[in-house]
Design a protein around this nucleic acid. Structure first.
Length: 1069
RNA sequence: UGGCCCGUAGCUCAGUUGGUUAGAGCGCACGCCUGAUAAGCGUGAGGUCGGCAGUUCGAGUCUGCCCGGGCCAACCA
């Protein structure tokens, strides 16, 4: 697959403008502007300014590979396992991607989410191993190899199966290697050196064991199903191997004589419909009596309305399927009538006096085709009152003696034909489904009737099996089989793909028995083989099925469907809607078809006794099979002499048919739990059932579904405790990504331009329960969020350069502002842990970005800059703040580590470098619940309201150019609401509002004072701060100048300078 | 065409059992700062809650229909 050319995103012009403004400040002429007034001493060297090498710009695309290398070298995955070996297990079981092609954005989303789960569970205190896997068998890989053959002019059928399979294996191996590197680049941590592959020998052996377990417990049976079949190539074809071309088909209209009727139902209807009754009375009884009809009378009328000589007319484009007819379908949504032919040419197939049942909308058209001159409509017909017809070929060649039931089927319309659909379950998928549905309903109705003896039940089931059997009318060579009596030797399609004589012979036989109404030809689009370009047919083919509704090992009611539905109830779904979706699918689905007539897969390792058709159930044989697969892979099945090798001395190979079909690959992947989660030797850190399966929502029909059925069949319960589904990745407008639209986004490109952490942050901040959007603007939003986050952490790191563990301040000794921050940390701790447990990553991103932006960057950090930068070494406030910064650092790096795996490692190593050091070896830190203090938080909510009013007042001053920095102000605050006064008691509002001074008074404000609409009882009157500007702290204070040693700074700053000198930090200016 | 799901500011998301004037972060505009500087702070403008109809005193929340989008309906994974 070719990757689209990476888009070099054009910078947003507005973004550029902002950048230009910032750059202006650095130009020399800009400096002259600000350099008015007396030169101030530059005290910056005497401040505790942030010091860090941590770059503002991440350079993720270049730097991420370095961390990956580091983790690989230190074997971080192994260290995690070792560290967590005594902890409870959490197992996210990997749904295997298919090993062909590069990964796309959907893979990236899926693997990233799994990594978020796995890493967060590890940090929450579990031993959370992650073993990635690949799905290796299957048709797409076969195709690729066949394509290579065709390019070389080689014929697949001439290559020994084992050799062909070897080429498929090599192909899959190559893609496993490529995808493995792509997945690792996303930052996904897992057992990459020891993944599982559905084609590894132990897997193939276990898949066969599972299949044999299904067989020996009586859940496997051989039935049949129509599949697309190419007579020319003698092979089944997949939908993708089909192309549609125009084709001329013979069409025929055929009479099906009505056989069994439900006359009393017709009579009931007549009695309930007065208008009909009136019409009937005029017609049949000469005069109308003013009384309800008796049952007898209505029965007489019914006989006239649904007479025994009526004929249902069908239309078909495949006359050759008539011998395979087993039913006639109609629709309850279509109106039908009984018609009598009143005028037609002599010798016409449709002759005068014949009564046809047709859809009203199509009657005229049908009679036109039948060259009928005149006809009359006699009555309404409800086809459900016809129980069965006889076959139009009844007795032909001694066959076709069965009843042909009428089936109400959804797929029938009155758009074309006659409103009745000839139903041949051997030759059409809809026919097949309608047929099975009909018998399923009959069987259900029977099961629901009360008072049935076991003998009656057995008799019913056996009759049912006989009636429901689907005939094999056409062989793989296109010739009729002996299940089409009277047509021996006729052929549907010949070796060159031309029409055989089947149609003509069928039409002749029908005409001879007066079953034809009309014939014609029609041009329509018809399926052809992609390879030979010749028409294909739907053909009944033997297939292996798993029963959905048979009692397993004789336990009444213990069916696979029942087990699966129970298992769904016992499973937790994220989001909850997934439960209904899966339940509906399981409740409706037909029996599971396991067989595929293909080469690259695990064979259905079953022997069938030729005379009895029984499946051989012998543990010794089964053991030999599994053993050989362990040693040689499933290829062993295809090696010469394999049959006798497995059957041993006990059986003769000649008595048994060795099945050569392979398993549906869904059985492979549905079995992963058995060969991965329960292989304790290979993966000791995994548990069964898995804690979680996590895939895209398409896997309700796929892996969730097949794994559930497989495990219910072999274990009786689900292989998972929880199921998490995510949506699909759409483009920026919510449209599906497709190569033809050119709106795809390749994960490789995002990584190259922005880095994997950006991709991961996008995943974490999206709502994965719905479809996710990804486009240029969304990536930019993510990049912006990342930058803000990174800078906040950078400032934290810069200040922590001055942190000393020995300066730690005890919680009780801290100022309230510090206690407030720790309270928030304790709150967040609970919220973050809960969100991680619920796989709610976007909540974590929202919670933490809001906290970091609003409460840290814009509030706490802004306020504490003064103390952190300027306070004396001895200052408790400064030490307390540093203590809080350390806690913030410890928590934030851990909480974000599962998401920003690279950046958090970078932040961690900046402070704690060392060979064995890694943020990913940590757990979420214990946060003391003693820090929680709701009263304090409530109090500070009030204080922050006061602060907002002050800030608002200052903004007016700024706008009026009376102040620039807030430190130039010393506003007066008038408070009439007691609650605010109480809250402010003992707090330094000037510090909190970042002004040089402030006055707070319990008094009515003068007119014109600044207020906010949503805060009552507070008013602010602005004023300039009195005193001189401190050259060190830039506050405007009256005490500046009162220290003789440092006349240009405030007393606090003079003290700070003295302490620094005493500590020998730097010489004084 | 059927089954299931989704639609709230430019973007990502909150919106309890229906209940004041629909919120947040980012982005954007404007201003401040220049000791977090390709940073930091503040203020502000952005919404017919996809549309229509209904239930209700009251609907982003409940119901129906419609529009738009997605997944599923394969011898594809």
């Amino acid at each position: 697959m070719k990757q689209p050319i990476p888009n070099q995103p054009l910078p947003d012009p507005r973004r550029l403008a902002k950048r230009r403004r910032n750059l202006l400040y650095r130009l020399p002429f800009a400096m002259t502007d600000t350099a008015t007034g007396a030169a101030e001493t530059d005290y910056s060297a005497t401040l505790f300014l942030p010091e860090t090498e941590f770059p503002m710009r991440a350079g993720l695309p270049d730097r991420e590979p370095g961390w990956l290398k580091r983790w690989e070298e230190m074997d971080i995955y192994g260290l995690q396992r070792e560290q967590a070996k005594d902890r409870p297990l959490f197992t996210i079981h990997d749904g295997p991607p298919y090993a062909n092609g590069n990964i796309h954005i959907g893979h990236a989303l899926n693997k990233t989410l799994k990594d978020l789960v796995s890493r967060s569970m590890q940090m929450l205190g579990f031993n959370s191993a992650y073993v990635p896997g690949w799905d290796c068998h299957g048709l797409p890989i076969e195709w690729k190899i066949e394509e290579q053959y065709r390019a070389k002019g080689k014929d697949k059928n001439e290559v020994p199966v084992v050799e062909f399979r070897q080429e498929c294996r090599t192909f899959a191996e190559q893609w496993v290697d490529i995808q493995r590197e792509e997945f690792k680049r996303l930052g996904v941590l897992g057992e990459w050196d020891n993944p599982y592959l559905t084609m590894s020998f132990d897997a193939e052996a276990q898949i066969a064991r599972e299949l044999m377990k299904v067989a020996t417990t009586g859940q496997l049976y051989r039935g049949s199903k129509p599949v697309m079949w190419s007579v020319v190539e003698r092979t089944a074809l997949a939908e993708a191997e089909i192309e549609y071309q125009d084709y001329e088909s013979d069409t025929i209209w055929v009479k099906f004589p009505v056989e069994q009727r439900n006359l009393s139902a017709v009579a009931d209807r007549i009695r309930s419909q007065t208008e009909i009754v009136e019409r009937v009375l005029v017609d049949t009884m000469q005069e109308a009596p003013a009384r309800p009809l008796s049952v007898e009378e209505s029965m007489q009328i019914a006989e006239k309305y649904l007479p025994s000589d009526a004929k249902v007319v069908i239309w078909t484009t495949t006359p050759w399927t008539i011998p395979a007819n087993r039913a006639v379908s109609f629709s309850g949504m279509v109106s039908y009538g009984l018609y009598e032919i009143t005028k037609a040419p002599e010798g016409n197939w449709a002759s005068v006096g014949e009564k046809y049942i047709l859809a009203d909308k199509l009657a005229a058209e049908t009679f036109a085709k039948a060259k009928v001159d005149e006809f009359a409509r006699i009555a309404d017909v409800d086809p459900s009152h016809i129980i069965s017809c006889s076959h139009p070929l009844k007795g032909f060649g001694g066959g076709y003696q069965f009843h042909v039931p009428l089936i109400d089927a959804d797929h029938v319309t009155d758009d074309a034909g006659t409103g009745f659909v000839h139903t041949a379950p051997s030759h059409g998928l809809e026919d097949y489904e309608a047929w099975n549905e009909y018998h399923r309903k009959r069987s259900q109705a029977f099961a629901n009737t009360v008072g049935i003896s076991l003998a009656e039940r057995a008799q019913f089931l056996s009759d049912m099996a006989r009636d429901a059997a689907i005939p094999y009318v056409v062989g793989d060579d296109g010739f009729y089989t002996n299940e089409a009596p009277g047509f021996e030797g006729a052929r549907v399609i010949d070796d060159n793909g031309k029409k055989g004589d089947a149609n003509n012979r069928v039409i002749a036989a029908l005409a001879e028995r007066n079953a034809m109404v009309a014939r014609g030809r029609v041009k329509h689009s018809y399926p052809h083989s992609w390879r030979s370009k010749k028409p294909v047919i739907f053909r009944n083919t033997p297939q292996w099925f798993v029963y959905m509704d048979r009692d397993i090992e004789g336990a009444a009611g213990d069916t696979l469907r029942h087990r699966a539905l129970n298992a769904i109830d016992a499973t937790k779904f994220y989001p909850a809607a997934g439960q209904n979706r899966l339940r509906a699918m399981i409740a409706d689905r037909p029996d599971w078809v396991l067989s595929r007539q293909r080469a690259w897969g695990v064979p259905i390792t079953v022997f069938v006794e030729k005379t009895t058709q029984d499946i051989l159930k012998d543990e010794t044989v089964n053991h030999r099979i599994a053993q050989s697969f362990e040693e040689e892979g499933a290829d062993a099945w295809y090696k010469p002499g394999a049959a006798q090798r497995y059957l041993g001395d006990a059986y003769k190979a000649g008595d048994y048919e060795m099945v050569t079909d392979v398993l549906d690959v869904w059985f492979d992947s549905g079995s992963t739990h058995s060969f991965v989660l329960r292989n304790k030797q290979k993966w000791p850190h995994l548990k069964f059932p898995a804690s979680l399966y996590l895939e895209g929502s398409d896997q309700h029909r796929g892996w969730f579904h097949s794994s559930l059925l497989e495990s219910c069949a072999t274990n009786g319960h689900a292989p998972y405790e929880g199921v998490l589904t995510h949506g699909f990745t759409m483009d920026g407008d919510g449209k599906k990504m497709s190569k033809s639209l050119g709106n795809t986004v390749a994960p490789q490109d995002i990584i190259k331009q922005y880095g994997a952490d950006i991709l991961r942050l996008w995943v974490a901040s999206s709502d994965y329960s719905e479809d996710l959007r990804l486009g240029k603007e969304i990536i930019q939003t993510t990049v912006d969020a990342y930058r803000k986050l990174r800078n906040t952490l950078r400032w934290l790191l810069g200040n922590l350069a001055h942190y000393e563990a020995s300066d730690e301040v005890a919680f009780a000794d801290m100022p309230e502002l510090e206690q407030l921050m720790l309270h928030r940390l304790a709150q967040l701790d609970a919220q973050v842990r809960t969100a991680y447990k619920e796989y709610d990553y976007r909540r974590i991103v929202t919670l933490l970005t809001n906290f970091m932006n609003i409460e840290l960057s814009a509030f706490y950090f802004d306020i504490r800059k003064d103390a952190l930068y300027c306070d004396p070494i001895s200052s408790i406030k400064r030490k307390a703040s540093l203590t809080v910064l350390n806690h913030l650092y410890m928590c934030l790096t851990a909480w974000l580590a599962p998401i920003l795996v690279f950046t958090m490692e970078e932040v961690w190593l900046e402070r704690f470098p060392g060979e064995g050091s890694s943020v990913h070896l940590r757990q979420f830190p214990d946060v003391p619940t003693e820090w929680l203090n709701e009263d304090l938080a409530a109090k500070w909510t009030l204080i922050r309201a006061v602060r907002r009013v002050v800030t608002g007042a200052l903004e007016v001053e700024r706008r009026e150019k009376r102040i620039g920095s807030s430190l130039e102000a010393a506003p007066k605050v008038f408070i009439t609401d007691e609650r605010y006064l109480t809250a402010l008691a003992g707090e330094d509002l000037a510090e909190i509002a970042i002004t040089s001074d402030i006055q707070v008074g319990n008094a009515e404000a003068p007119a014109g004072a600044f207020t906010l609409d949503d805060v009552s009882g507070i008013a602010v009157v602005p004023a300039l701060a009195q005193g001189q500007r401190c050259a060190r702290s830039w506050k405007v204070l009256p005490d500046v100048g009162s220290d003789p040693e440092f006349p240009d700074v405030s007393l606090r700053d003079a003290q700070a300078l003295r302490e620094r000198a005493a500590a020998g930090l730097e010489p004084l200016a």
